[in-house]
């Protein structure tokens, strides 16, 4: 029987994110990301919109989009960035020289340097369990090690509001129908990266692709 390669997709429902950041904590624990340096594989942006009395705060979770056309893969000079047969973009830690060409190339801010100090802290915290033993550029893998065992990514499993959903386009499911019926849409499709993370948009969430839903004036914020 011919082996069927899964077509994994990730769906984020912006209507149900409450900004609890449990996904960030679960990811940091699962993947030993350097939270001590404020670096995350997945992040929930908390954005304040408008002014009193109309002020409100909205949440926007993002992670690696596992692009079909992958700018970071093309920019990597060493071949440290590679793709699995399922299309998951991974980084070979040993091979990566940390030139940051991939960080620059990523249109979604999904990559960051795991520096020597971070490696030291990781080894101090996790001891023999440490999985980051050399400096490299790090990124979300959709918890590929879990997927191979039939588990969902840690952030999906822990999300209390089902804002984060994971599925296979080959299998009929709520997730695959959201994508195939166009109810969930990708970010910055004009770049031609063909992301595999799709968003169910919300009236209140300031994502570029749904800006027609919003009527607030532009504003500036310093973070």
């Amino acid at each position: 029987m011919e082996k069927v390669i899964p077509k994994w997709v990730f769906v984020v429902d912006l209507n149900s994110c409450v900004g609890c950041n449990a996904c960030m904590a679960a990811c940091a624990q699962e993947n030993q990301t350097p939270y001590w340096s404020e670096k995350w594989r997945t992040k929930v942006e908390q954005i304040e919109i408008g002014e009193f009395p109309e002020a409100k705060r909205v949440f926007f979770p993002h992670l690696c989009m596992q692009c079909q056309n992958t700018p970071c893969y093309y920019a990597c000079p060493t071949g440290a960035t590679y793709k699995t047969e399922e299309g998951i973009v991974l980084v070979n830690h040993e091979r990566c020289i940390g030139c940051e060409a991939c960080v620059i190339a990523c249109p979604y801010g999904a990559r960051y340097p795991y520096e020597s100090d971070d490696v030291d802290e990781c080894e101090k915290l996790y001891g023999e369990e440490a999985r980051h033993t050399t400096p490299h550029i790090d990124k979300c893998t959709w918890c590929y090690h879990r997927l191979k065992e039939g588990l969902e990514p840690a952030c999906v499993e822990t999300c209390p509001t089902n804002c984060r959903m994971f599925g296979d386009l080959n299998v009929d499911s709520y997730v695959s129908r959201l994508v195939l019926e166009g109810k969930a849409i990708p970010l910055s499709p004009q770049l031609g990266t063909e992301p595999k993370v799709f968003y169910v948009t919300s009236k209140e969430t300031p994502v570029g692709v749904v800006s027609h839903h919003l009527d607030e004036p532009p504003y500036k914020q310093t973070i």
């Binding site: 893969y73 093309y74 920019a75 990597c76 000079p77 060493t78 071949g79 440290a80 091979r95 990566c96 020289i97 940390g98 030139c99 060409a101 340097p113 520096e115 020597s116 050399t134 400096p135 490299h136 550029i137």
Partner: peptide, 17 residues
């Protein structure tokens, strides 16, 4: 981050580096 492995840059021709 790891300049001592810089010779790896000659392994992936899709990169301008």
């Amino acid at each position: 981050l790891k300049p001592w492995f810089a010779f790896f840059v000659w392994t992936h021709p899709t990169s301008w580096i």
